[in-house]
Design a binder for these strands. Structure first.
Length: 294
DNA sequence: AAGAACTCCTGTTGGC
DNA sequence: TGCCAACAGGAGTTCT
């Protein structure tokens, strides 16, 4: 589900609830998500204060007062729901069954010192949580080899051209590869390629000259990646099926999609009379306009 | 090595 | 209405 704009929106929602607070009690309702949860997970968290909440790619990192870091990834359907002491709950009114549809997939509940709760729900359980010493984070299997942040200075046309030089994979696949740029997903890659006028099937290596220098398209792509992510951030992300903000609210960038989910509809490019097509690449849907994306 | 295919899991949707 | 295949904001693992 969540790509960088959604994860960052979740981070901004959780930060004021978590930072400066402590875990009073942690309920773990199953042994694993995508991977087994860490040994003695609840016990190791209990009593720990949260000093900061950061984001790296699509991971949330809660830094604790004992030097450990709680790593959290939302996978496809992961979601945090916050209930604050005086603020009521997001559970709709009336009585709640112990195992009703809403709570069935709530696998972890963090009870905080001030009475707030943060519930982690994840239907497909592709999410991840781990707890490691801060000093070992960079060598963690999930972080070692993770690419650069797309909104950082590191992503520029010269860097991207050098990385893409010689690549035979389609540009869509290259942009989804988290070892290169970390944080993009299916939606924002489709949208960025459309903004840049680049066909998703184009060989990635063609976005660099023979000597690995950027082309005009490389520059356009870098600008498009940054602009689509920033636009989505301003909209609180995109809500299609599962994604919600921590207050239960919806993101609304889905209303600004130019290609994603718009198969058969008119291209929204400037003065383009094309029709959005859907193809499958690497088993995943790609939406693009065959007229203005070359 | 790089790239493509397969895998995890549950729920929803669309076609027949 | 039922049944079944396809598909869903991800990404590690296993093949070729």
């Amino acid at each position: 589900m969540p790509e960088l704009p959604e994860v960052e929106t979740v981070r901004r929602g959780l930060e004021p609830v978590l930072v400066g607070n402590a875990f009073a009690r942690v309920e773990q309702r199953r042994p694993d998500l995508r991977f087994p949860l860490p040994a003695r997970f609840s016990e190791r968290l209990t009593g720990r204060a949260i000093e900061s909440l950061d984001r790296r790619a699509k991971y949330l990192l809660a830094r604790l007062d004992d030097g450990q870091v709680l790593i959290m990834h939302l996978g496809m359907t992961g979601r945090f729901i916050v209930d604050t002491p005086g603020g009521g709950t997001n559970t709709s009114g009336g009585f709640v069954h112990g195992q009703d549809a809403a709570s069935k997939h709530e696998h972890i509940v963090f009870h905080l010192g001030d009475g707030a709760t943060v519930r982690y729900s994840d239907v497909r359980r592709f999410g991840i949580m781990d707890l490691v010493p801060s000093a070992t984070l960079d060598s963690h299997a999930l972080f070692k080899g993770l690419g650069i942040e797309p909104l950082g200075e590191g992503l520029n046309a010269a860097w991207l051209a050098a990385k893409l030089k010689g690549k035979t994979a389609p540009i869509k696949a290259a942009l989804l590869d988290q070892r290169l740029i970390a944080g993009l997903g299916n939606i924002y890659v489709c949208e960025a390629l459309h903004r840049a006028g680049i066909a998703p099937l184009k060989r990635a290596g063609l976005l660099a000259t023979k000597t690995g220098r950027p082309t005009e398209k490389t520059t356009a792509l870098v600008q498009s990646i940054k602009s689509v992510l920033n636009d989505a951030l301003r909209s609180g992300g995109s809500s299609l099926r599962d994604y919600r903000r921590t207050d239960g609210g919806l993101g609304y960038f889905q209303h600004s999609f130019r290609t994603y989910g718009r198969e058969g509809e008119p291209c929204l490019g400037d003065a383009c009379d094309g029709t959005v097509r859907r193809i499958v690449q690497g088993g995943r849907s790609t939406f693009y306009c065959p007229i203005c994306q070359k």
